[in-house]
Design a protein around this nucleic acid. Structure first.
Lengths: 233, 233
DNA sequence: ACAAAAGTGTTATGCGTACACCCATGA
DNA sequence: TCATGGGTGTACGCATAACACTTTTGT
């Protein structure tokens, strides 16, 4: 035997959970599915892996198609492959999450898909097992973000410490002591203070910071804890 | 369009990284591949996902076929799906790791496969991208075991604290202070002291312990740290 | 008696946390 | 001048980690 001829083929898909942060709370980007089955229902953005693509390539292509963005932080979450998860035929889906700067998205929005941002707590019913995928993605994000400073991928170039705090609060659904949080973050050397202040969101105004890319690249492969206790799960 | 007919099918495989611990160090179980291509070369145990199976089912079936064991701790690691990773045709592989009690294995060993245990540091060259899979598995194990007490899955029912310490040392390739480690573990309430001692491995003898299943089931979904610092990567 | 491994006691240090307090500013 | 959110100072406690020391037993 020199081939796997007797083995049953499957279709390989990719689905993306796209996280964005608008200063209010964490959101995910969903589309209205444009084809049967389950046409016009809310769904994750997805597509099929092509012969020349790895699943990673495929995920990047799909993300670009919807958001226009490239070089986005993406991470493989899991494979969903129950025999009957798709009603049509056997489709196994590799699921990724992406962290994007929501502002960059807004300028490039593709109207080919009826895409909308949903707060994490108001995700509608989705097709197939997509709700389950979202749950797993949320869990993975929590897990990972507790150890690595990946949530900065969600922020614009300039951001304030209260904003980051809000972001962490949103990811973990907790309340942080902003005072301690601020110190912890500053002492990490991960962010650099700018001259400018954000005066929109408070009377006193909060200083803008930018990422210290040197330290960031180092710590993204290491880990650190900005969070009190361990509010994962 | 009510079907995905134009989409290219792929073959879906599963590969298992089987970890075992023999009191010396962490090992992985490899087989000599029994069919072409790459016949007679060292390989992970694997197989194809059947029409009625989820990838999880498939992984459990494959593990049982090699080791005779069921109800084993398994975890999905990642999907490997580069277009040309298999030389024969397009095969996408879902990779799992399994943690087994090596003693249970030894009684049920299947001789259909030429299987051998290899110390983590002496893994031979494997077919395709299997070496890469092993590396990812090691990393995931470290990551997870730093937060959850999963390594106990590798131990027999009775074990000593020095054994567990050795196991952690083996997983992380570090030296632990056995004195502090012992206290930390005891104070977690995770293990219960037995009357009996292991007198084989030392003059004084070390007390045997068993898992406190109540606490274990609770903590396996939570997390705790037995390790000083954070020796992940 | 000695070596070797198991295990206990003790202590310095630092981190996490709580919270009092000060600062800047718009209304 | 008061309310609001941003930010600093400080103090307490507990977990960590370092390491001196005791215990047990085979040789």
């Amino acid at each position: 035997m020199t081939s796997y001829k007797t083995e049953p083929p499957v279709l390989l898909a990719v689905d993306c959970i796209i996280f964005g942060f608008d200063g209010e709370g964490l959101k995910i980007l969903l589309i209205k599915r444009g084809f049967e089955p389950e046409r016009h229902k809310w769904s994750l953005m997805g597509g099929f892996v092509q012969p020349t693509e790895s699943p990673e390539d495929s995920a990047a292509r799909i993300l670009k198609k919807l958001t226009g963005l490239t070089d986005v932080y993406m991470e493989q979450i899991a494979v969903f492959g129950k025999p009957d998860r798709d009603t049509e035929q056997r489709v196994v889906s590799v699921v990724y999450f992406a962290l994007i700067d929501i502002n960059k998205y807004e300028h490039v929005i593709s109207h080919d898909y009826r895409a909308e941002w949903f707060p994490l707590k108001e995700v509608p019913q989705l097709i197939f097992d997509h709700n389950e995928m979202v749950e797993v993605a949320k869990k993975k994000l929590k897990y990972k973000a507790a150890l690595y400073p990946i949530v900065f991928e969600l922020l614009p170039e300039k951001f304030t410490i209260p904003q980051i705090a809000l972001l962490y609060e949103s990811v973990y659904d907790i309340d942080l002591d902003r005072r301690n949080f601020s110190r912890k973050l500053l002492s990490s050397g991960l962010i650099i203070k700018l001259k400018e202040k954000d005066t929109e969101n408070s009377k006193k105004g909060a200083f803008y910071f930018k990422i210290n890319t040197e330290v960031y690249k180092e710590k993204i492969m290491s880990f650190l804890r900005f969070l009190p206790g361990w509010p994962i799960d």
